[in-house]
Design a protein around this nucleic acid. Structure first.
Length: 359
DNA sequence: GAAACGTGGCT
DNA sequence: TAGCCAAGTTT
């Protein structure tokens, strides 16, 4: 399969006119991003890798400050590998999809220990590393090492499905989209081509109201010709989200908040949390849920609820507050109030709710 | 192939 | 408000 796709690409001319059109557009309109090397310069594989992991299912705007902080604190892969996992997780807090941070750390250790601190320069070896799948392996190979790889992310799926008017719904359409993308990758500047394709999807070939008149591929685009670009790509219908409920126990003393570390895997795995009762699919019965408080205290119920939407369910939290524990809290520690940015988004939301209620 | 896995911005 | 979407990977 892979060899067949490669033969398709190699059967093309060195650089097709359509691919060159995109590179010319990129030379004029490329975005200036913190992890992107200046035109014509080599990029740092560590920075490319770090940015690609952060950018998985995450917007450029959200990633920028995190990328800057990580690069400042851990400038190289060996620095990251030497850090405690907890430090990496706390620095990642708020970005979401925390398995990425766990895999990031695990990958840094493998690179440092088994690869002499150097990233592999080919897709196959990259894909064996934790947190690196089809897309990220291709992206790193192309961007960091200028290898002719097809980096197919959501942007590229959209651009290619419109260009060739692929109406088969995702994710089944991934195979033909990938084959078509690979056929377009030029031998010259494949790294720039990968980034150009993503920039095109992000800036011109947007999900809604694509700017077709400004597109370097307008003349080639089947969807533009038919005028139905916005209807592509076709996606499978989404399932509805169930609603779950819980109590949160906000315990504050001397300007510090009681927190604990969640189990290493699963939802918010390894992250700090404000203790909660179990998350159930029915509203909590107060007496029953309070039995799950991690300590005895004089609890008062704060008005309102905290609503948090996860990918596959929605959570409604009622916050209980106390100033002094009656029994000594166990399995946790006190966190200064100015360190609450080390909590995941849901927990920061609970904290804001509790702090707003007392002021 | 389907489900688990976060979060914030935009319409 | 509710739904959609963002440089996906793992199980």
């Amino acid at each position: 399969m892979g060899s067949r796709q490669t033969s398709i690409r190699k059967s093309q001319k060195r650089s097709q006119p359509i691919s060159r059109d995109l590179l010319l557009w990129y030379d004029r309109h490329r975005r200036d991003l913190p992890w992107r090397a200046a035109a014509g310069e080599r990029s740092d594989p560590y920075a490319v890798w770090l940015s690609e992991i952060m950018l998985q299912q995450t917007t450029v705007t959200a990633v920028k400050p995190y990328f800057e902080r990580f690069m400042a604190r851990w400038p190289g892969v060996r620095d990251l590998a030497a850090a405690p996992l907890e430090a990496v997780l706390d620095q990642w807090a708020g970005l979401g999809y925390y398995a990425r941070a766990r895999n990031l750390h695990a990958c840094a250790i493998i690179i440092s220990r088994d690869h002499d601190g150097l990233f592999p320069d080919n897709e196959a070896a990259l894909k064996r590393l934790p947190g690196i799948g089809d897309y990220t392996a291709a992206a790193i190979a192309a961007i960091a090492f200028d290898r002719p790889a097809a980096a197919v992310d959501g942007n590229v799926e959209r651009v290619i499905s419109r260009l060739y008017h692929i109406t088969q719904p995702l994710p089944a359409a991934k195979k033909p989209i990938r084959a078509q993308t690979l056929a377009l990758v030029p031998d010259d500047r494949p790294g720039d081509f990968a980034q150009a394709l993503m920039d095109l999807g992000a800036v011109i070939c947007t999900p809604r109201q694509p700017r077709c008149p400004a597109c370097p591929w307008q003349a080639h685009c089947r969807a533009a010709a038919k005028g139905d670009a916005e209807s592509l790509p076709v996606k499978a219908p989404k399932k509805q989200r169930p609603i779950r409920h819980a109590l949160a126990f906000w315990l504050e003393k001397d300007g510090a908040v009681f927190v604990r570390r969640r189990p290493a895997k699963g939802l918010l795995g390894g992250m700090l949390e404000i203790p909660t009762s179990p998350w159930l699919d029915t509203p909590p019965l107060m007496a029953e849920a309070m039995a799950h408080a991690p300590y005895q205290a004089q609890w008062s119920t704060l008005p309102g609820e905290v609503r948090h939407v996860f990918t596959h369910f929605e959570l409604l939290i009622t916050v209980l507050r106390a100033d002094q524990p009656i029994s000594a809290p166990k399995d946790g520690h006190w966190l200064a109030r100015d360190q609450l940015d080390g909590l995941p988004g849901l927990m920061q939301k609970i904290a804001r709710h509790a702090l707003a209620a007392q002021s």
